[in-house]
Design a protein around this nucleic acid. Structure first.
Length: 843
RNA sequence: GCCCGGGUGGCGGAAUUGGUUUACGCAGCGGACUUAAAAUCCGUGGCCUAAAAGGCUUGUGGGUUCGAGUCCCACCCCGGGCACCA
């Protein structure tokens, strides 16, 4: 790799006197050098082993880079720099996730085209990122709003459509009746419109949906194959929400119709005293002719549809429903006729959209039953055991006897009032009851997920146009792939229409097109994709960012993928991570991603903690407590900011900014600078032995800590070393160790170390040097401080050789006055000896 | 309500995974340098006690152990996520 050193490289001879540390000057100088030489370019298909280090690409908002972005970028920049020094071919790319609402809202307000705003913001972000000395490969920069990029986002959508994984459905959207605008979930704050504060209602719209539910099982199972923090895995599993149970068929009396019900508690089936359907349940339409109070029912359904989920939840406390008169269902276990209701508290999209209500053993059902005076049958008796203390179980049993309690017993137990299943335990009964009913086809094992299909339509402007065409004769068809990208047309008004449609509807010249199949007049889809669309596959494009013929070459993917280390915010642990894993799996299924690659895109995922403002309050413009990286760099320098952000606290933990604390980081670098200056004067050849030993321990510590995300302790060990170096009166560091020290520090403070490297006289870059190795024989201790305890309490310390045998140490310890005092007059019963550490006398 | 994280000096946090609690940094205090200040350097930093000796101390209470910040049980508090999921 060609390397252009700056003109002014001073030789060691001329730098006897090191000038004052001036980060602003040296940082700008080296950043220019790196930029000019395209210094951190990743090499495709190199013989070297690869390492793909990825940070989440930012949304370039007008506010500029946040210190939180820096935390993530600097940490993985350190990893990337270390990997390069370890001889790996590193891919460390950056790009822009630039479609989205804030830019669009800004355009609505100002009339400035989002493209222009985006351009300005990305330039701002880029300048700030460069001023941090991050080693991104800028030659691979991508932007989701670039037609050359979203061409392929659209292409993926078409592939999904071809595989029946994209479909249209009528789905309620959040609707602000005042602004007359469809709102994204993020724009609904506590059930109100973000801008006008009006209560948000629901409005049904035809929307494109992606069938992510088809991948639910794989998205859970394949988590076994990846190295994610356990809490992230738990979050994903909870989000998908798998639950195993049974569907049970309830016959409608005197009518050829059945209603399926999903339950995880088949053991309570004898206690099912009514059915409840979700208001939108399709059975209602089918049974219309038999329903005596249909008008009333219909009105209830209409009302329910208008409400938002939040509103429903609030009202549900008092469980309102409507009985469907004229029809009854039959409980298959005892052939009893039971009433049917519709109620808000049953959700259409979960299970079968209908439940069997067991008021004795489900709190919600109980509340409902009490309100409508429905019968409550106890069918599960708690098992008396240690887990139920006798006092409380006694009172519980007493109150349950009367069935007057407001508390449903929701646990498992032994069956009662359940015919031939009486006396059986819940677990057993579940199996037996299902087996019994399954013989007549009345029950079937089933799995239900909380995960819902992904609403992929936004009635907005600033997003990727969905590449679909509607023909009156042929229905929905995908745009021909040769026409991609379907470019976002220019509009006069960025605001959605009165009816809540995308402003694109008004661009007739764009909307009107021809059917790709029958050539008759047809219309383009005017909805655009959500902001997740571009980000769910961007890491794949980095492998081959300029490919015009295909989404990416398989050869390059095979070389670079999978991502070896992906860091991002905890807020993306569910949606972004889940969506992008889904899209990856899909691309793998259709062989766009080579089969030889694994089924997961990210080998290892980590999350950085949020940085709060001083005093632990969230940084926000309105509170005026935003720390801008630019300001910090101006005042202290980028290397100081980098060191401070790594030192501030445990990487994964939320932490508050401390304006005073940053001084410590600067002082540390000043100290290194000063010590280097001393070195240039003395030009030592050998390090003093103690310092050398500590240095090798430091290499070990820093090397290991970077791998395990302990950047804070890595920095503190470097500080500790610099303190020892400064205190050393026996000659300080020799040349080899001085060089190695700069190398170990270089990922943290790339500018300062590069400058000092030049001052030694090197024309090459320190960032191409080999990562130092520690000498294991050197860090081995010969002398240890033994702890002397009496009865487990520390009573003294003894310096001795680490290998000292028990007997010898015992003698030594017992000869000390301090120790003798505690033992005198007592008998030593036992001696505990931990080699190299401690001795403890038990009396 | 459920699921994760977490409670250690004045503050941010360390602690080799059961073996010196408080590394490193901030703040404080004392000193050196300086006409002075800043910067820098040296020293000092848990609490009780004038000091020594000693005692106490990792949210609270109990337990296991020669020995617990670390393991077990119960509880309290803080942060985050999910929440009518049948």
């Amino acid at each position: 790799m060609a390397y252009n050193s700056p003109r002014k490289v001073a030789s060691a001879a001329t730098t006897r006197q090191l000038k004052k540390y001036n980060p602003q000057r040296i940082e700008r100088k080296w950043q220019r050098v790196w930029e000019r030489g395209d210094f951190y370019r990743a090499k495709d298909l190199s013989k070297k082993p690869k390492s793909y280090i990825l940070v989440e690409f930012p949304y370039p908002s007008g506010d500029g880079l946040h210190v939180g972005h820096c935390r993530s970028y600097v940490a993985l920049d350190i990893v990337a720099r270390k990997r390069r020094m370890e001889g790996l071919n590193v891919l460390f790319p950056m790009g822009w996730d630039a479609f989205g609402l804030p830019t669009e809202n800004y355009a609505i307000k100002t009339g400035i085209h989002p493209r222009i705003v985006t351009k300005k913001n990305t330039a701002f972000f880029k300048r700030q990122e460069k001023s941090l000395g991050l080693s991104f490969d800028w030659s691979r920069e991508i932007n989701t709003t670039d037609p050359a990029y979203y061409k392929w986002t659209q292409w993926i959508f078409i592939q999904l459509f071809k595989k029946n994984l994209a479909y249209k459905a009528r789905i309620p959207i959040n609707w602000c009746p005042d602004c007359k605008i469809g709102l994204a979930n993020e724009e609904v704050i506590d059930g109100r419109c973000e801008r006008c504060g009006k209560r948000v209602t629901k409005k049904e719209k035809e929307q494109w949906m992606l069938k992510i539910t088809k991948y639910a099982e794989r998205l859970i199972k394949d988590l076994e194959k990846v190295d994610y923090p356990e809490r992230v895995k738990a979050l994903q599993k909870d989000w998908i929400g798998k639950s195993e149970g049974t569907t049970i068929k309830f016959q409608i009396s005197n009518f050829k119709f059945q209603i399926d019900v999903f339950t995880t508690r088949a053991d309570t089936l004898f206690g099912a005293t009514f059915l409840v359907l979700a208001p939108e349940h399709p059975a209602i339409e089918s049974l219309k002719s038999k329903i005596r109070n249909y008008k009333f029912v219909e009105r209830y359904i209409k009302e329910a549809r208008k409400k938002t989920e939040k509103e429903r939840i609030i009202e549900i406390r008092n469980k309102i429903g409507v009985e469907i008169k004229g029809i009854k269902a039959v409980n298959p276990v005892n052939n009893r006729e039971i009433q049917i209701f519709i109620a808000d508290y049953v959700l259409l999209h979960y299970g079968t959209g209908a439940i069997m209500a067991v008021p004795a053993h489900d709190q919600r059902d109980l509340n409902f039953a009490k309100q409508y005076n429905l019968s409550i049958i106890d069918v599960i008796k708690p098992i008396e055991s240690r887990s139920y203390p006798s006092t409380s179980s006694g009172s519980r049993a007493a109150s349950r006897d009367k069935l007057k309690s407001d508390q449903a017993y929701e646990g498992e137990g032994v069956l009662i009032n359940s015919g031939r299943f009486n006396g059986m335990k819940s677990d057993d009964a579940k199996k037996r009851i299902v087996e019994w009913l399954a013989r007549d086809g009345k029950a079937k094992r089933a799995v239900s997920y909380k995960l819902r299909d992904w609403i992929f339509s936004r009635q907005r402007y600033w997003g990727e146009p969905i590449p679909m065409i509607k023909c009156q004769k042929c229905g929905w068809l995908s745009a021909p792939e040769k026409d991609l990208p379907i470019e976002l047309p220019r509009v006069k008004e960025y605001k959605p229409t009165e009816k809540g449609e995308s402003p694109l509807v008004k661009v007739k010249s764009w909307v009107n097109t021809k059917c790709p199949k029958c050539n008759s007049p047809a219309e383009r889809e005017t909805d655009v994709m959500p902001n997740w669309a571009g980000s769910n596959w961007y890491y794949l494009r980095y492998c081959d960012p300029r490919n015009k013929k295909s989404i990416f070459s398989q050869k390059l993917l095979k070389y670079w993928m999978p991502v070896d280390w992906y860091n991002g915010g905890m807020e993306h642990a569910t949606l972004h991570l889940l969506y992008s894993r889904f899209i990856y799996k899909f691309l793998w299924d259709i062989k766009a991603v080579p089969r030889s690659l694994g089924v997961e895109p990210y080998k290892k995922r980590t999350s950085h903690g949020v940085i709060l403002g001083e005093g632990g309050i969230k940084m926000s413009k309105s509170k005026g407590n935003v720390i801008s990286p630019e300001q910090v760099i101006k005042e202290y320098g980028a290397d100081t900011l980098r060191i401070y952000e790594m030192f501030i606290g445990p990487f994964e933990q939320t932490i508050a900014w401390d304006a005073k604390g940053i001084k410590g980081a600067r002082r540390f670098l000043e100290r290194v600078w000063r010590l280097a200056g001393q070195f240039f004067v003395t030009q030592n050849s050998q390090s003093s032995p103690d310092l050398k030993k500590l240095f090798h321990k430091t290499i070990k510590k820093v090397s290991e800590d970077i791998e395990s995300l302990k950047f804070n302790t890595a920095v503190s060990s470097l500080m500790e070393f610099s303190n020892a170096w400064q205190a050393d009166r026996r000659g300080g560091l020799g040349k080899k160790d001085f060089k190695d020290f700069l190398k170990v520090l270089s990922p943290f403070a790339p500018h300062l170390t590069q400058e000092l490297w030049g001052k030694i006289g090197f024309k090459s870059s320190i960032h191409n040097e080999k990562w130092p190795k520690y000498d294991p024989t050197l860090i081995k201790e010969e002398i240890a401080t033994f702890i002397v305890q009496v009865q487990g309490r520390v009573r003294g310390k003894i310096e001795a050789e680490i290998e000292i045998p028990e007997e010898k140490l015992k003698k030594l310890a017992l000869s000390q006055e301090k120790i003798k005092k505690w033992i005198i007059g007592k008998k030593i019963k036992k001696t505990i000896f931990i080699p190299g550490k401690l001795i403890n006398f038990v009396l």
